[in-house]
Design a protein around this nucleic acid. Structure first.
Lengths: 242, 242
DNA sequence: CACTGCTTGTGAACTTACTGACAAGCACTG
DNA sequence: CAGTGCTTGTCAGTAAGTTCACAAGCAGTG
């Protein structure tokens, strides 16, 4: 176990491992080797062992990893043992779709509020029963509901202003869907999902005939291919979103 | 100008530069230096010059880059001078929201069809006037409509099967929103957006008090990382999505 | 046309991330 | 309890990406 700082690539992979471990556990598998796990993702087994070794010695030589035990360790590492409460800002198509989305860990994340600046929407209730509040109530509701993660699903032009309000309200973690670069204050983490960048990446691929014949998956986990369900990397120490 | 193969991180950044150049052009700015551009994204100016130099010598020493000219070059590089026609598979909340989403380059991408396996939905028309087809028609409609990019917005359990059908229909570029690893055939590019990974990354950040005080933005551009509006990187040569 | 100021394009240095290789060590066998 | 088989944890080597630093070169001045 080391104490260096952990790369985001590593934590992205932990999420992927966790998903797989959940399936293995449900399937009744008791142990798994780094080699067997690696084959699921076209990864190198040393990569997996190294990712895990940052956080402790979870494996048993000659045996592999105990699935349930490792799953629980990763949950702990990722902070998924306590529920995170989420507000979605922007009750447009995207915001409402996200509010209904069941794709993420149901146990660890719960969307509890929607916000919109449109007075027509504020005060009403979404189709799935979530209250829609006015932006002016942001601070109060965040405190009252114990919200610790905010999703920004507003048009690009409004995102920066909304982001400032969110930081003013004390939120430290933001998932941004607006195609803009948000400048985070110290102690605030932004993760962006930028569909334009992803589509343009595909366009670039299609524009190069020499790519034909090569199979490519984004490193994504942003490529989540894991995949990038959540973000696009551009490198650098600032978010640029993809 | 070099001929090495171009990193996806580079093309992600090109998308970001393009967005900025569009704004500069609209604002009437004629030229911009790599230094000035770099300050917009907290990037190193050498990074920008190098990214551009892969594709040609677009700048003028002592002056910088001509905004409109560079914008046009990047459009060309990314294959945005011809329109891409998109089908969205899955007419659920997410699929319909994506179909209505105006966030990407309106000139270069156009969603022209929705697909769903639910016979109740197939045959009808979305609120915004897009036809919803049955999955059985996939091949025919793709050919008839000249679709070259497919967005997968179906539940995780259905994604793999849908992906196979999409590849059978000859599609070479896929944007995947389902939280699964899709195994692409040679010549097929998958870019994934995995919200679970993004949220778990935020959860990891919140779980580490030592992070307080450090400002962080994903490298995403997939992170733009810049971001990851479109994808999450996990490294490796296979998609892992984030 | 020489000179100054500024900015590009790029080789070299540096940093980060991934992979190879192997000693250490558990489980099972006889 | 020695021996075999298998898998981890980790060090060392390689690859990929970023930043530094500077020669090359354009524009404007006098």
């Amino acid at each position: 176990m080391k104490t260096e700082k952990i790369s985001e690539l590593t934590t992205n992979r932990l999420s992927v491992y966790l998903r797989c471990l959940n399936e293995l556990s449900a399937a009744g598998v008791e142990t798994i080797s780094s080699q067997a796990l690696a084959e699921q993702f076209n990864l190198n087994s040393a990569q997996i062992r190294k990712d895990l070794a940052y956080f402790g010695e979870f494996g048993v030589r000659g045996v592999g990893y105990y699935v349930r035990e490792l799953r629980d360790h990763i949950r702990q590492i990722l902070g998924l043992t306590t529920e995170h409460r989420i507000a979605v800002i922007g009750a447009g198509n995207l915001g409402l779709a996200l509010a209904n989305y069941q794709g993420f860990n149901v146990n660890s994340f719960r969307i509890v509020a929607l916000f919109d600046s449109d007075p027509e929407k504020a005060g009403s209730v979404s189709r799935t029963g979530l209250p829609i509040y006015d932006m002016a109530q942001l601070s109060d509701i965040i405190r009252r509901e114990g919200i610790d993660i905010v999703v920004i699903a507003v048009p690009a032009a409004a995102a920066e202003n909304v982001f400032e309000q969110v930081m003013d309200a004390g939120i430290k973690a933001v998932l941004n869907f607006a195609p803009v670069l948000l400048n985070a204050r110290p102690g605030v983490r932004v993760r962006s999902v930028d569909m334009a960048i992803s589509l343009e990446s595909l366009s670039y691929f299609l524009a190069r005939p020499q790519n034909a014949g090569t199979s490519e998956a984004d490193d994504a986990l942003n490529g989540f291919q894991y995949q990038d369900a959540a973000g696009t990397e551009v490198g650098g120490n600032q978010q640029v979103t993809g």
